[in-house]
Design a protein around this nucleic acid. Structure first.
Lengths: 320, 320
DNA sequence: ATGAAAGCGCTAACAA
DNA sequence: TTGTTAGCGCTTTCAT
């Protein structure tokens, strides 16, 4: 009989009590391949467990982020995976307390005691990788290395800045605020800040762009000014662009395992969801739900030295 | 009083009757920047109207597609935006009849009378653009131009193949099946088919890759074989990779307005949703719901001739 | 085994 | 205006 059209109403099923079998994912920007891969990783983990993912773009704007958190809470998603865009831990804390398990990806929230709050964190190592990247530039003889960065409200931006400064200090170079720029993690921001850096003194001979979008913007600016990379201006960055980098082995980069981040986040959050529903099932066992502390998984960041830092290409060029 | 924690349950609201204010989007692969942009365009249109988007990857696999259509139907999304992965029009037809408005993006379904079925289509022009691309290769003196293509079940693949053949025919060249390869719209498929083409006779002097992933794969293969582009092997493709192409103005391409496609699809589908709910509201007016016929919007495809086809670069190179 | 009923959290229609 | 109630489509419990 149901052969003749019957589609169960998941809304009613969910309302009844169970769960929505849906995860919410809020990232800064899906146009950034880094987040795309992360999303893909999470989706794969989710579908394998019979869950769907609702994907939202916050544009790293706390307002938009807040709006999406609200929407996802109303929708009663079973869990939230978030790249937080603000320093205020309260929204995340509230969500975790009221609406369900939370996993932070790519970056933690500065003032948040995720361990006590039972919030997991999956991120890539930033500080050390940034230090190595800049250290490498210095080893090429650069004395005036600039940094173009994202907003200081994001921990990745802070970590990468600290790594940058540490590399300078260790090498006996002075930290010069005139060579430090912050903005958004966007192409446009990278273009603007680089353009500005190039018109003021001291003029940098190398730039550390803290994400791939910023690096793209820096290249746009260099091109606009007629500078060639790496001879007129060296460049290193974070976040590899997959495949593109394979055929265009040019940019030296600290590569993060984006897809793994998504998958691991999925693992964490699904585990918490299962655990929670299991506890609900046998609620009789008087013992207070023993809260699972927040865990932190820090994935390795791999340095890939290519041409933009001044190193010679490994193989003969594909293009002429 | 509600200051102290109250989050309305959207499930219950939706169940009650209204709508879910959610759109379903099924694309081949979010890792492809083309679909990423499309998704972003749709999301922007959707959020502006107070809708959210559930994003799903079909991997151009009819099975996965079917599974997602089912999930989205159960979830009672208000509308579906789909890049169809099969030739069978039935699933789409069923969805449109039972579950709500449908808009096809990027490609129609071959055997589907979308006009009669009230299904909108937003796509880029493929046939003519493909013809021009190949015509351009021929104007560079190429006589053995190969095509590496997606599966023949996708109309974009068919259109691009036909454009390719037409260009050859018009130029008085013979269509040679040994130079035609099909597979998936993936990097791996592009690599494999190119590798195979390069080991057999007749050896192509130019390749038309019908999407950006295939082109990436072709470059991987060329690199593997030690061939340089464009001198040893010329290359043209479809779908630009934004920003990357700006700083690396290399690949000659027929560029599709991906974000616009998403936005226009959003416009179409939201219009239908509004229209439908308006009709439901004043159902008294005895007149049968005058079905709105399916519309087709074909967006222009822009030829961007750069270096990989053999044309000289416009400006001096950014890199050395 | 099959069937009836309560209730998930809302909204809309109706009553006071 | 404010208050009450029926019911959206399911699942789960309890009675037959």
């Amino acid at each position: 009989m149901r052969e003749l059209n019957y589609v169960p109403n998941a809304l009613a099923q969910s309302l009844k009590g169970r769960s929505t079998r849906t995860l919410g994912l809020v990232v800064g920007d899906v146009s950034n391949p880094f987040f795309t891969l992360l999303a893909r990783g999470l989706e794969d983990a989710a579908t394998a467990a019979g869950y769907s993912v609702i994907l939202c773009n916050s544009d790293d704007d706390p307002k938009k982020e807040r709006a999406y958190l609200e929407i996802l809470a109303r929708r009663r998603v079973d869990g939230l995976v978030l790249t937080p865009s603000q320093t205020d831990p309260q929204p995340v804390l509230d969500w975790a307390r009221q609406s369900g398990p939370v996993c932070l990806v790519d970056r933690p929230v500065a003032g948040l005691d995720f361990h006590a709050a039972g919030i997991d964190v999956v991120r890539g190592e930033s500080l050390h990788a940034a230090e190595k990247l800049v250290e490498h530039l210095i080893s090429h003889g650069h004395k005036r290395v600039a940094i173009i960065n994202g907003p200081p409200t994001l921990s990745t931006a802070v970590d990468r800045l600290n790594g940058y400064r540490r590399a300078l200090t260790v090498a006996g170079l002075k930290v010069d605020k005139r060579l430090e720029r912050e903005g958004h993690f966007s192409v446009e921001s990278g273009r603007e800040t680089t353009l500005e850096l190039l018109t003021k003194k001291p003029t940098p001979t190398a730039i550390f762009a803290t994400n791939n979008q910023l690096a793209l913007g820096a290249m746009l600016a260099a091109r606009h000014r007629g500078l060639r990379i790496p001879d007129d201006l060296a460049l290193v960055t974070f976040e590899d662009i997959p495949h593109v980098a394979d055929v265009w082995p040019f940019i030296s980069v600290a590569a993060q395992a984006a897809a793994s981040m998504g998958q691991e986040a999925g693992r964490f959050i699904l585990e918490r969801i299962e655990r929670q529903s299991a506890q609900n099932a046998q609620q009789k066992g008087g013992g207070k739900a023993e809260a699972l502390h927040g865990r932190e998984l820090v994935l390795d960041t791999e340095l890939r030295l290519r041409r933009s830092c001044g190193c010679t290409p490994v193989a003969g060029g594909l293009f002429q």
